[in-house]
Design a binder for these strands. Structure first.
Ligand SMILES: NC(=O)c1ccc[n+]([C@@H]2O[C@H](COP(=O)([O-])OP(=O)(O)OC[C@H]3O[C@@H](n4cnc5c(N)ncnc54)[C@H](O)[C@@H]3O)[C@@H](O)[C@H]2O)c1
Ligand SMILES: NC(=O)c1ccc[n+]([C@@H]2O[C@H](COP(=O)([O-])OP(=O)(O)OC[C@H]3O[C@@H](n4cnc5c(N)ncnc54)[C@H](O)[C@@H]3O)[C@@H](O)[C@H]2O)c1
Lengths: 206, 206
DNA sequence: ATTCATCTGTTATTTTTTTCACATTGCAGC
DNA sequence: GCTGCAATGTGAAAAAAATAACAGATGAAT
């Protein structure tokens, strides 16, 4: 299991599942590659190849069975059980992110949030317990959390990241726009809205 | 001007500039391709190729002049003057995004925010005026805003997007996780944190 | 002034990703 | 039960992106 898949395919698989989760209750039990492609601005070939790579066989007439598809994507890209996620920095962005993940139907499970601000600790946010950042080491270790979301202010980014890594975090989603120097076995993903905006600005046509 | 550049290169150019903006005041006037690459987890060849594509010539011994680099990236990826951006949905995420863009040193300029909640309109957020969503059409048209950020609740996404497009918006950065059906000449960029997290979950190694 | 190590600029190569093309399959309708 | 249309599954081709390789440039050291 867990064959070597192209990163782009993994990304799209996650997107297929998110889209189809909304479809699975209503109307059809099956979907065609070209329908799925049209919904996501992809090509039908791309969709078929992705599904081929995970070994899903569609019906030549009816298309792909939606619940089989969702199930197999899960078997392919999810770990055994739901994965625990920690979040550091309960500001506007942190709150939005926690709320969003909680509302989404995903196996990513935010189980702890950390902040330095005493007013924010010992509360719950969308069901997630908030702790002092000083407790992060212990909690991440005890709960075996391996993924962290970093939404602290830029000044605190480097320091907080190294604390997280010392506690056993293996992957970081970094929103701080600060470059983090992480060892090669750590999976780091940066997201910066400015980059997205500038790309849009470059490619729009009047 | 504005040669046909690969999307990946445009993305990285934006990232180079954001990083180097922080460097330009202090220490060195020049930077080597391998230094820049190391700071961003890229290869030196990739950096050199990107800079070659925009016609930047480095000094064979000292590397690239940082201010020349910043200037040329601007000449390449920016439009004439700063670009106006509108934001719809002043919730937690919307507030975080406005604050972030305002603090960043970018030519992307958020000039209007819209919400349906009467308590939020006629205030200012990090200097950005907030209006009723019903005024969006007029303001976007009058101010000739062409880029919009969508941070309304999922239920309102489709409706708000079509309002924005009708008002003259050409590019949308969509955070709602709802699929938007836009005409082909509109540049749509979706961002979904769940996809990023699931990708991290798939690629981390224990 | 010359040597030399090091870095750039660019062509060539490899790898990755997407698209094409089409044989094969399954079902609806006759 | 055939027939034919409309899908899928997949090798092959093409395009895009990343990496390698190296000639030529430059300034530091002597
Ligand atoms: N990448 C993007 O697209 C994007 C968008 C918006 C914001 N951001 C960035 O995300 C971060 C958070 O933004 P925000 O608007 O939520 O800011 P915020 O100021 O509202 O929240 C920051 C939170 O971090 C807490 N904090 C401060 N130091 C800490 C520490 N050492 N350990 C733990 N918590 C600490 C603060 O108490 C606060 O609650 C900032 O770095 C901002 O630049 C990025
Ligand atoms: N993609 C991501 O990573 C990500 C992360 C967090 C949140 N989100 C999404 O972003 C959106 C906003 O999230 P949030 O946490 O800020 O939610 P929120 O509820 O705090 O804010 C939504 C805002 O939109 C306003 N609004 C509602 N209907 C509107 C309309 N028709 N026109 C204009 N404004 C309207 C509300 O008054 C509110 O101020 C949601 O769709 C959420 O799912 C996405």
């Amino acid at each position: 299991m867990k064959a070597k898949l192209p990163p782009r395919t993994v990304e799209r698989l996650s997107i297929y599942r998110r889209l189809l989760d909304k479809y699975k209750d209503l109307d059809e039990a099956h979907i065609h590659s070209h329908k799925l492609a049209a919904l996501l601005n992809l090509t039908p070939e791309q969709v078929r190849r992705d599904l081929m790579l995970i070994g899903l066989t569609g019906n030549h007439r009816k298309g792909y069975n939606i619940s089989a598809l969702i199930g197999l994507i899960g078997d392919t890209i999810d770990r055994e059980e739901s994965q625990k996620v920690a979040l550091a920095g309960i500001g506007n962005l942190g709150k939005a992110v926690i709320g969003f993940i909680r509302k989404s139907n995903t196996r990513m499970n935010v189980v702890a949030a950390f902040d330095i601000d005493k007013n924010k600790v010992n509360t719950r946010l969308a069901g997630v317990p908030c702790y002092e950042i000083s407790q992060a080491g212990k909690i991440i270790h005890d709960e075996q959390i391996r993924i962290a979301i970093l939404t602290v202010p830029p000044e605190a980014a480097a320091e907080t990241a190294s604390l997280l890594l010392d506690s056993g975090i293996k992957g970081i989603l970094n929103f701080t726009s600060v470059h983090l120097d992480v060892p090669p076995h750590i999976y780091l993903k940066d997201y910066d809205i400015i980059t997205s905006l500038e790309e849009i600005g470059f490619f729009i046509t009047d």
